[in-house]
């Protein structure tokens, strides 16, 4: 698509046309590379253990991606704005406890209880957004505070005991049930797929998504362009909170109980997924597909290493190494591109 003849384009900087093409290619390559490493890792495990590629195991991998995936989807938006959300792990546990409180303790009907738990997550996100956007706290500090408060509140509200959903088997079906009877495709995976689609549409097709990128790219310029940056930041953190709420419902449905003490550590796994997927912590760049691939890499690693009977402790060591390699490779690519 060229609107100008060549004599005009030559007056722009000489490098312009070349690097323009290069940059779109580069961003495709970047996703391709994350995707390629996923394939390589999967191929490795497939060779190491034939079980890996069976339908049942693939569903296992997807099933174990659900919680991290949901958290990572929401936090992708926050990270693209140049922020960070540390509260999603313990926030998820608190939302699970709230689901238990609503449904088990208070006896609120299941659909409404689930909705309230998700909205509660949105409320946590709103608090983060308010503290970041209105009070001007650094996102790291604001969400660290929420993380600690959520951790404490989950224990306080549940009296430090798990809340079991024994009387509401429907709740468990949200995760482990199959929409089509007899076909092994758990609802949890369906929820994740839908969440991915919604997140991708929000980020790529809506004003919210455009502002997310704009804020991360240049917050001052965006504000001076007449965009109410503060308001949109609150919206974005609230959105991340809704995903946290959904993750809280899905994890407690899977376990059959709300475990108040779990949650811490999930936020770092989610952030790892986002970063492996090529989203920049500096903001302005990122994609939902990248995050999905990042989350899949993490669960493929965990699953494959388990199949190879490698202890959990070593799995973390390997995951850490993968993060290093992935992010370093990304930096090298960018540096190579910028020195031209």
């Amino acid at each position: 698509m060229t609107t100008h003849d060549t004599s005009e384009t030559t007056t722009t900087t000489a490098a312009a046309p070349a690097s323009g093409v290069g940059s779109t290619l580069r961003s495709r390559l970047q996703q391709l590379l994350a995707f390629a490493s996923l394939i390589v890792i999967a191929a490795f495990f497939a060779v190491a253990n034939p079980v890996f590629l069976t339908y049942g195991n693939i569903i296992n991998v997807l099933f174990s991606t659900v919680v991290i995936g949901l958290l990572a989807l929401g936090t992708t938006f926050v990270i693209i704005t140049g922020g960070i959300d540390l509260s999603i792990g313990t926030g998820m546990a608190l939302c699970a406890v709230m689901a238990g409180t609503f449904i088990v303790t208070w006896g609120i009907p299941l659909p409404l209880g689930v909705l309230l738990a998700v909205l509660f997550g949105g409320f946590l996100g709103f608090v983060n957004g308010f503290n970041v956007a209105k009070l001007g706290l650094p996102p790291f500090i604001a969400t660290l505070a929420t993380m600690l408060m959520a951790q404490g509140l989950a224990l306080v509200i549940s009296h430090s005991a798990p809340i079991y959903f024994s009387d509401t088997p429907g709740y468990l079906k949200l995760s482990t049930g199959n929409l089509i009877p007899g076909v092994n495709f758990p609802n949890a995976v369906l929820v994740l797929v839908l969440a991915v689609v919604v997140a991708a549409i929000l980020l790529n097709r809506t004003v919210l998504g455009r502002y997310t990128f704009a804020i991360g790219s240049n917050e001052e310029a965006t504000a001076l362009s007449g965009i109410n940056v503060r308001r949109w930041k609150i919206v974005i953190y609230t959105l991340a909170g809704l995903f946290t709420g959904l993750a809280g419902v899905m994890i407690s449905a899977r376990l059959g109980s709300a475990q108040p003490a779990t949650g811490a550590g999930y936020e770092l796994q989610a952030i790892a997924a986002v970063v492996i997927g090529g989203t920049s912590l500096a903001g302005g760049k990122g994609s939902i597909i990248g995050t999905v691939i990042g989350a899949l890499i993490i669960s493929v690693l965990n699953n494959g290493l388990q199949l190879m009977s490698i202890p959990q402790e070593w799995q973390n060591v390997i995951l850490g190494a993968v993060i290093l390699v992935a992010v370093y490779a990304d930096m090298v690519r960018k540096r190579a591109a910028s020195t031209t």
Partner: peptide, 30 residues
Amino acid sequence: KHFGLLLDQTVSSNIALSSLGDKFSRQGFV
């Protein structure tokens, strides 16, 4: 560079930025 442009974004994104919310979207969809 600091207070005007989104340098990493395209010409069209930069031109649309201020009017995204009204002129260039319907029900939030761009």
